[in-house]
Design a protein around this nucleic acid. Structure first.
Lengths: 239, 239
DNA sequence: CGGATAGTTGACTACCCTCAAGGTATGTGG
DNA sequence: CCACATACCTTGAGGGTAGTCAACTATCCG
């Protein structure tokens, strides 16, 4: 199975083959883990970075009273805890949502890699900027979009992101999240996610069944979510 | 007037005096600008970085129908558009909220500075991670906190951030945002901000008048907002 | 077949929005 | 100095989106 982080950076960054090979070598410690498992926990002092090679994971924050929020979905090619490089205390947990294949990189090894290949550092910084842009877009969704718009927008984002790493077909993709997990992404309750899903289905924009989302009307879905992919920087560092 | 970005990095990063001096030299192009001015606009191809030396600015996104959201408040010591380093199209505008003093750094010069001093690149990456953590915390506020909790949380955050750059006293700070601007941060309407402000005043947690916020009961305010400063990484890169 | 998890629906509630009006503060020009 | 304009703040009434609580159904698995 090809490494989706490499596939992504080969297409989007300006890294040379030598640098890509060095990064690939750093991803040699590959592990399989089950679903619903904490890879790191809020408050941990991070010593390892986790690259998602296959499966879905998320960052999550849980308040003292149990309120839960998911500020990031981690898809193949994403680094779950990239800030472990320079931050000494994590303020979120990284949790698998499905069984995952991960590459685990020692923090010290990653820092050494960046020192030897500054371009890799730049590529990681670029990834961080894209995450930042995504977080800002989610902010807008949480504050200024209706639940229906927000959900449609999320479905659009996931199609673009999964396509970039070869995990989607033209008209759909696997959707392993429960309505409760979608709610924790969107800042809603599972009941309301269910209710908002119905008009999206009824208007013929999507189908969602058996852990699989089918986009029936891409233009309509984009319009319903006010979606513009620019914030995902789909053309990479140099465009 | 001392450079607040330097003050911050002197305290929080592991930069040497030589590196700090190099960064200071890069900040030599200082400009004064008025309030409510766009420094860069959504869609721009960025050629300059803007460091806030004094005054308040923000990142802002405006949808086609006029809905507005502010995903970041930029205080002295913040870099308004740090992703200009590696991103070729901005997906937000940077706008001044008050008259500001700015240092303007040419993008190429900044890249050269990082190449010569990799530690400066690491410090900037750390700043980006802290921004990221702040964005994630705002996400939680937008999705999972009530309006009153969210506003209290924001007031707490601003006290910590302004204190770090010497712009707050022990019990308060200048608050130049109108209720409408606060609403665009919190994903509310100005009417509701006004209503939520009243219990915070009535319970003796804060005073807010004449563009100045006074914290009357810090513990109470923290409790009302569920505030824990850890996400701001107030002890810097190495702690 | 039994148990657990997830999805669906209904009734009721509440937080926040919309629309509208009036009040206060500040600045400007005559 | 006053008249006026312009923001911004405050308050009220009514409505809509999303939450809560609860029950029922569907699906998956051992």
């Amino acid at each position: 199975m090809p490494n989706p982080l490499l596939a992504r950076l080969r297409l989007l960054s300006t890294l040379s083959e030598v640098e890509l090979a060095a990064l690939e070598a750093a991803c040699s410690d590959v592990r399989q883990v089950g679903a619903r498992l904490d890879l790191v926990r809020e408050g941990d002092r991070p010593e390892r970075l986790h690259v998602v090679l296959d499966g879905w994971a998320c960052r999550q924050k849980v308040a003292a009273d149990g309120r839960r929020h998911i500020p990031a979905l981690l898809l193949p090619g994403d680094i779950g805890d990239i800030d472990s490089l320079h931050v000494r205390r994590l303020d979120y947990s990284v949790t698998t949502l499905t069984p995952c294949t991960l590459a685990v990189i020692d923090r010290a090894a990653a820092l050494e890699l960046i020192e030897r290949h500054p371009s890799i550092g730049q590529a990681l910084m670029w990834l961080t900027f894209v995450e930042n842009a995504t977080l800002a877009e989610w902010n807008f969704g949480l504050g200024r979009r209706t639940a229906k718009e927000h959900l449609a927008h999320l479905f659009c984002e996931l199609l673009i992101r999964l396509s970039a790493v070869g995990r989607a077909e033209a008209n759909g993709y696997p959707m392993p999240l429960s309505q409760g997990e979608l709610a924790d992404v969107l800042g809603l309750t599972s009941v309301h996610v269910n209710r908002v899903l119905q008009p999206l289905r009824g208007e013929g924009l999507i189908e969602l069944q058996a852990q699989r989302l089918t986009v029936r009307d891409w233009d309509g879905l984009k319009k319903a979510g006010g979606f513009d992919a620019a914030y995902l920087h789909p053309h990479g560092m140099s465009a």
